[in-house]
Amino acid sequence: MPRSRLVAPVLGLALVVAGCATVPPESDPEARAEYFERNDPLEPLNRAVFAVNEAFDHLLFRPAAEAYRIFVPRPVRTGIGNVLDNLLVPKTAANQLLQGRADEAAASAARFIINSTLGVLGIFDVASEMGIEPRFEDFGQTLAVWAGTTNGGPYLVLPILGPSNLRDTFALPIDVAMDPWTWIGQGDQVRALRTGRTVTQAIDTREQFIEAGDALRAQSLDFYAALRSVYQQRRERDIRNEGRPQVRRFFDER
């Protein structure tokens, strides 16, 4: 028995060591610069996880997202998406506060109150009509602001969850703990609601990424490397709050 208990960690360690890309020598400064810009010392391991994730996406997530688009009419999807977005606002406000942006946190609080009441539990995005535009923050971004750098450490591909890095992976459980919906209420029904939210969130996110994902895949010579670069650039933009506010969802075709 002790032997089999040993096998898994040893195998895991061997995989990690074998999965490490080597740093180019000092004599090749350009290759070194490229290595650090890529920021992916665990690349072989990441590529293996990525391949598994791709299979899951192909067999499960993309078909689910497509079915969602086909069977659920657009106005209903918009309403569901608005509810999901609204549930993210309290956590956003907390992170804005932690990042020292009190005015933005106040706007988020106002947004949440307006959309939860006038907007009927968040179905209608009344706040945007009133000029309070949606913004989203997570604890990974807060850590980046505290650290004063957009560099999140080595790139990581997490099973199922996909692209991440050391900072964002570390922030993930804290982010979940910071979300008030993790703690409010109890019992089977609440637990079912929580699971429902997670599943719907996953499908909704994938549905919005159908075209962009297909286009990126079709155009790229190396989809893994393309997605890694996109993730790193997007996170940097989100941390600096340089992007325009989240794209609005509309009930009608436009």
């Binding site: 890529r38 010579l221 393309a226 670069s229 650039q233």
Partner: peptide, 13 residues
């Protein structure tokens, strides 16, 4: 927010 030439460079390399 995603630069095409930066993404492409990282991919080609």
């Amino acid at each position: 927010g995603t630069s095409l030439r930066i993404t492409q460079r990282s991919e080609y390399s």
